[in-house]
C-alpha cells in the first residue's frame, strides 16, 4: 500500500504546472525516502528531477517501492479538479494498475476521488553526478521568469554571463539586442528579494529560450531560483518546494557549430 497525504495540496497542482509542458509522461518512483521523478524531454535537451521527501508529507506510507508511470496531461487534468486549499492524498496498491487522487476540502465537507490508469513506461534514467559549480546565482524567481520572457522576444537563445560584477542576461536577433544586468544585492532586508552570487570562475553560456521558459513555469513554487553553471556541464535551475523538497531542471547549452 502506498499513501501520501499533503495538507498543502496546491503544491501538487503547482508541480504539475511546472512539468506538464516539458514532459508528456513520466515515472513517479515512490520509496521509503519519498517520491522522485526524473525525465527528459523528447529531444533529450533538458531533464526534470523532482524530489519530495517523505518527512515533508503530513502522512506517508510506502510498504513496497513503486514505480508509477503516468501521463502528465491526464494527471494535470485531475489536479485541476482540486481546490487550492484542498488536502491531497495519493493512494495506490502494491503493483498497481491505477492510482487514486483524493481531494478533501479544509472543512472536511467535500471529498472527491479520481482514479487514473497507470502506464508502463520504459524511460531512460540518467546518472547525474554531484559537481562543484563555477557560478551559483540565487535570485528572485519572478525576476528570472520576467527576464526570460522579456529576452525571448529578441531571439531563440539567451546568453547568461556571470562574473564578480554580477550576472548578465543577453539576447539578440532581427529587431536588435537586449541586456539585463543584475548586481549582487548589497543590503538585503528580505532574503527572498536578494540576488547572491557565489563564483569560482567567470562563465558565459548560451541556452535556448524555449526551455528556460518551460522551467519558469515552476515560479509559483518558490520565491527564489538558483542557477548553477560550470564549463562542460549542463545548467541547473533549481526551485525549492517549501520544506518538502525541490524541483531541478538541467539544460544542455548551445554551442557554436
Amino acid at each position: 500500500m502506498f499513501e501520501a497525504r499533503l495538507a498543502k495540496g496546491a503544491i501538487f497542482k503547482k508541480i504539475l504546472e511546472a512539468v506538464k509542458d516539458l514532459l508528456t509522461e513520466a515515472s513517479w518512483d515512490c520509496g521509503d525516502m519519498g517520491i522522485t521523478l526524473q525525465a527528459m524531454d523528447n529531444a533529450h535537451v533538458s531533464l526534470v528531477s523532482l524530489n519530495l521527501r517523505s518527512d515533508g508529507f503530513d502522512k506517508y506510507r510506502c510498504d513496497r517501492n513503486l514505480t508509477m508511470g503516468m501521463n502528465l496531461g491526464s494527471m494535470s487534468k485531475i489536479l485541476k479538479c482540486a481546490g487550492n486549499d484542498d488536502i491531497v492524498t495519493i493512494r495506490a496498491q502494491d503493483n498497481p494498475d491505477t492510482v487514486t487522487f483524493v481531494f478533501e476540502s479544509e472543512n472536511g465537507e467535500k471529498q472527491s476521488d479520481y482514479e487514473m490508469k497507470l502506464m508502463s513506461l520504459d524511460l531512460e534514467h540518467l546518472q547525474i553526478p554531484e559537481t562543484e559549480y563555477a557560478c551559483v546565482v540565487k535570485m528572485p524567481a519572478g525576476e528570472f521568469a520576467r527576464i526570460c520572457r522579456d529576452l525571448s522576444q529578441f531571439g531563440d537563445s539567451i546568453v547568461i554571463s556571470c562574473s564578480k560584477q554580477g550576472v548578465k542576461f543577453s539576447a539578440s536577433g532581427d529587431i536588435g539586442s537586449a541586456n539585463v544586468k543584475l548586481a549582487q544585492s548589497s543590503n538585503v532586508d528580505k532574503e527572498e528579494e536578494a540576488v547572491t552570487i557565489e563564483m569560482q570562475e567567470p562563465v558565459s553560456f548560451t541556452y535556448a529560450c524555449r526551455y528556460l521558459n518551460f522551467f519558469t513555469k515552476a515560479t509559483p513554487l518558490s520565491a527564489q531560483v538558483k542557477l548553477s553553471m560550470s564549463p562542460e556541464y549542463p545548467l541547473m535551475v533549481e526551485y525549492a518546494i517549501d520544506d518538502i523538497g525541490q524541483i531541478r531542471y538541467f539544460l544542455a547549452p548551445k554551442i557554436e557549430d
Binding site: M40, A43, H44, V45, S157, T206, A252
Partner: peptide, 14 residues
C-alpha cells in the same frame, strides 16, 4: 550558427 547539445553527452545512463 549555434548547435543545441543534448544531455546524453553530459550524463550517462544510470
Amino acid at each position: 550558427k549555434q548547435g543545441q547539445r543534448r544531455l546524453d553527452s553530459f550524463f550517462t545512463a544510470a
